[in-house]
Write a protein that binds this DNA or RNA. Structure first.
Length: 598
RNA sequence: GGAGCCGUAGUUCAGUUUGGUUAGAACGCCUGACUGUCACUCAGGAGGUCGCGAGUUCGAGUCUCGUCGGUUCCGCCA
C-alpha cells in the first residue's frame, strides 16, 4: 500500500513548525464534525495533534466525515496557528490544515471507548489489551518500565556484572512454591519445571567463577494470586562471589538511589537503615515494617508491668508464658490528628476479634489526667502505674492492649498499628522509606507438614554462631537459628530478599537433614548443586528484587497488572488469548499423557 | 482451600431493600442538521439470553440453591 509516511509524530509539533508541510500517521482519537469544518484528534504513542479538514477541500471532506474512532489515517498538510488554542495539550497551539487524507485501515467500533478516563472494567480491558494500551496512562507504564530496565542494565554493567540467561526449562525441585510443569515428548513421563527463580543456576555461575551475575528474568510460581502477584513475574536477580551481607546491601542501595534519582528525582540516603528480624517483630509486629510511621506506636511489652494484677484474662496469659502488650497513640501523630472516639475504639475491638483475639483492652487518659479504661476495675494500683510508666502516658493518649501467645500478640498489634496508620492517614506517599531487615530465622516449623521448612530457601547460610545447632533435635533450638538472610522493605512492601549462601556441602547436607530430606533424597533433588559445591565453590551471596512491584511503586499503583503488558487474572488466565486452554488428543498422545476424568 | 464485593443495552451504571404495567439513564453506535470545535451542539433512531442452570411463586432482574467469570483479602507464595 502506498501512503504518505509520517514526517513527524503526533506529540512534537508546535508554533516553531508553523508553515511546514508535514505528514502525520496515527489513530483517530476523536472526530468533531461541525457540518462544514471537521476537526480530528490524531493519536500515536507520542501524543495527540489536531488536524482540520475545511469544507473547501471537497476531495477529502466526505472521507473525513466518514472516519470512525480508531481508524488509522495518514494526513498531509500545513502546520498552522490555531484560532482558539487548547492549553491542555503540548500541541494545542497548532493544527494541521489537511490537503491529503488517506485511510490506512478501518476499525470496528471498539468494545469500549479508548480514552484517558476509561470507563470499562478491567476484565474487558484485559480482553482487548491492545486497545487499553493505546491509552496514555497505560503506555506511560510500559515506557516507565522500559526506562527502569535501562537503568538496571546500565547500573550493573558499570559495576562489572555480567548478564547471563539461565534456562527456562529446568529441573523440578521440591521446597518452596508449586512448579509449573512442562511435559517432555522425547522423555515420556518426565517433566521440566519453569523456574521459580534462577537460584541454583546463579549459584552455579559463582562456582564457575563468573563473580558478578545479574539478570532481569522471568520467574514462575503456581500459587494463588493477588493484586501484587502474577503467575509469571519479573525479578532483578543478582549474585556475587567473595561478598558479605554489607557488600550486597551497598551495591543494591546504589541501584535504588540511581532509580529514585532518575525517575522520581528523589535523593535516597546513601545507606539504608537496617534492623534485625527480631527487632522488627518486637517493635512493629511485622517483618516488613512501614517506616513512614517511624517509631510511633511502637509495641510495648506490658507483661512485667501487670504481673501482680488480679485480672484473670491477663493472669492466664502470664501463667501460660504468653504476652500482654500494647501500642499508644497520642492526639496527633506525624502531624495527623488522631481522635479515638467510642465508635472508633469499638471498631478496633471488632477488628481484634476478627483477627482472632477475645477482645481488646483500651485505656485512655483524659485531659484532666484521669484514666478511663475497659479493664480499670480489674487492675491494681501497681499494674496501672506500670502501664502508665511503660508508655509514659500523657493526657489525650490512648492505649490498645492485646494479650495471648507472644507471636500472635505481636502480629496482632502490628496489624492494629497499620490499621490506625491507614485510618488516620499517617502513610505519606511522598515519603520513601527503605529498610533492610536482617537475621531472619533459618527455619520455621510447618504444623501441617509436621516438619521444618526453610524460611527463605534451602541454600541460605546460618550465621556462624548458630551452625552447631544444626545438629540439634530440639525444636526451640532449631527455631532459634538465625540466618544470613535479609529483605529489603520499601514503605511497608517487601521489594526483595536475599542471603549469603551456603558454599560448603557438609553444612548444606545438615540443612537438608533438618528439613527432612535424607541424604539420598537430597542427592536426587539437589545432587547437581551439591556436587558443584565440591569443586571449589567460592563464598557467595545475592539478592533478588521484584521488578513488577518496583515499577508499580514508581508508577504509583498497587496492582502490578497495570505495568505488565499482558497480565493474567487472579485465576491465572489470560482473557485476551484465552489461555490456559485444552489441547488436542494428538498432542497429549505425543507426550504420553492421559487426562483424568472429572 | 476459605471469606467479602461485583455480574442488567456495545460500555458504565440505576432498578434487587418491600417479587407485579412496555427493564431506565448517560456515554458509544446509526440517520439528519450545523464552518472554530477540543466533553462540539441540536433533532431523531436502533440496541436487552438482566452471567448460566435449577427451584419457590399465579408471577422472578428482584427470593432460595447451585454454577461460571472478574476482583479484594486470609491460607498459600523457600
Amino acid at each position: 500500500m502506498l501512503y504518505n509516511k509520517r514526517t513527524n509524530t503526533c506529540g512534537e509539533l508546535n508554533t516553531r513548525n508553523i508553515g511546514e508541510t508535514v505528514v502525520l500517521n496515527g489513530w483517530v482519537a476523536k472526530k468533531r464534525d461541525l457540518g462544514g469544518i471537521i476537526f480530528i484528534d490524531v493519536r500515536d504513542r507520542y501524543g495527540i495533534t489536531q488536524i482540520k479538514v475545511s469544507p473547501e477541500k471537497k476531495n477529502i471532506s466526505a472521507l473525513a466525515a466518514s472516519l470512525g474512532n480508531e481508524f488509522v489515517i495518514s494526513a498531509k498538510g500545513n502546520v498552522i496557528q490555531r484560532e482558539s488554542p487548547n492549553k491542555n495539550i503540548p500541541t494545542g497551539e497548532i493544527e494541521i490544515d489537511v490537503d491529503e487524507l488517506q485511510v490506512l485501515n478501518e476499525s470496528l467500533t471498539t468494545p469500549f471507548v479508548v480514552e484517558e478516563e476509561v470507563k470499562a472494567n478491567e476484565d474487558l480491558r484485559l480482553q482487548y489489551r491492545y486497545l487499553d494500551l493505546r491509552r496514555k496512562k497505560m503506555m506511560d507504564g510500559l515506557l516507565l518500565r522500559n526506562r527502569v530496565y535501562q537503568l538496571v542494565h546500565e547500573y550493573y554493567a558499570k559495576l562489572n556484572f555480567v548478564e547471563v540467561e539461565t534456562p527456562i526449562l529446568m529441573k523440578s525441585t521440591p521446597e518452596g512454591a508449586r512448579d509449573y510443569l512442562v511435559p517432555s515428548r522425547v522423555h515420556k513421563g518426565k517433566f521440566y519445571a519453569l523456574p521459580q527463580s534462577p537460584q541454583t543456576y546463579k549459584q552455579i555461575l559463582m562456582v564457575s567463577g563468573l563473580d558478578r551475575y545479574v539478570q532481569i528474568c522471568k520467574c514462575f510460581r503456581d500459587e494463588d494470586l493477588r493484586a501484587d502477584r502474577q503467575p509469571e513475574f519479573t525479578q532483578i536477580d543478582v549474585e556475587m562471589s567473595f561478598v558479605g551481607q554489607e557488600d550486597v546491601f551497598k551495591i543494591s542501595e546504589g541501584l535504588f538511589a540511581k532509580i529514585w534519582k532518575e525517575i522520581l528525582n528523589f535523593e535516597l540516603p546513601v545507606r539504608f537503615p537496617r534492623i534485625t528480624y527480631d527487632e522488627a517483630m518486637t517493635k512493629y509486629g511485622i517483618d516488613k515494617p512501614d517506616m513512614r510511621i517511624k517509631d510511633l506506636m511502637v509495641i510495648t511489652d506490658l507483661t512485667a508491668a501487670v504481673k501482680t494484677c488480679e485480672f484473670k484474662v491477663f493472669n492466664d496469659v502470664i501463667n501460660s508464658g504468653g504476652m500482654i502488650a500494647g501500642i499508644k497513640t497520642g492526639k496527633s501523630v506525624n502531624g495527623a490528628k488522631i481522635e479515638i472516639t467510642r465508635k472508633i475504639s469499638d471498631s478496633y475491638t471488632e477488628f481484634a476479634k476478627k483477627i482472632g483475639f477475645g477482645g481488646l483492652a483500651t485505656l485512655k487518659m483524659n485531659d484532666d489526667g484521669t484514666l478511663q479504661s475497659s479493664i480499670l476495675k480489674f487492675l491494681n494500683e501497681e499494674s496501672i502505674n506500670g502501664i502508665k510508666n511503660a508508655f509514659d502516658i500523657k493526657p489525650g493518649d490512648f492505649v490498645f492492649i492485646l494479650s495471648g501467645e507472644r507471636n500472635k500478640v505481636l502480629a496482632g498489634l502490628g496489624q492494629m498499628r497499620l490499621k490506625i496508620a491507614e485510618d488516620f492517614k499517617l502513610l505519606d506517599d511522598s515519603k520513601h522509606e527503605f529498610i533492610w531487615i536482617t537475621d531472619f530465622p533459618l527455619f520455621h516449623y510447618d504444623e501441617e507438614e509436621n516438619r521444618f521448612v526453610g524460611e527463605h530457601h534451602v541454600f541460605t547460610s546460618p550465621k556462624d554462631e548458630f551452625i552447631h545447632l544444626l545438629d540439634s533435635k530440639d525444636r526451640k533450638e532449631i527455631e532459634s537459628i538465625r540466618a544470613n538472610c535479609y529483605d529489603l522493605v520499601y514503605n511497608g512492601t517487601e521489594l526483595g530478599s536475599g542471603s549469603i549462601r551456603i558454599h560448603n556441602s557438609d553444612t548444606q547436607k545438615k540443612v537438608f537433614n533438618v528439613i527432612g530430606l535424607t541424604d539420598e533424597e537430597a542427592i536426587e533433588k539437589f545432587g547437581f548443586i551439591l556436587e558443584a559445591f565440591r569443586y571449589g565453590a567460592p563464598p557467595h551471596g545475592g539478592v533478588a528484587f521484584g521488578f513488577d512491584r518496583l515499577v508499580a511503586m514508581l508508577y504509583g499503583t498497587k496492582s502490578i497488572r497495570d505495568i505488565i503488558a499482558f497480565p493474567k487474572t487472579v485465576s491465572a488466565a489470560s482473557l485476551m488469548d484465552n489461555c490456559p486452554s485444552p489441547v488436542i488428543n494428538q498432542q497429549l498422545d505425543e507426550l504420553g499423557i492421559q487426562l483424568k476424568k472429572g
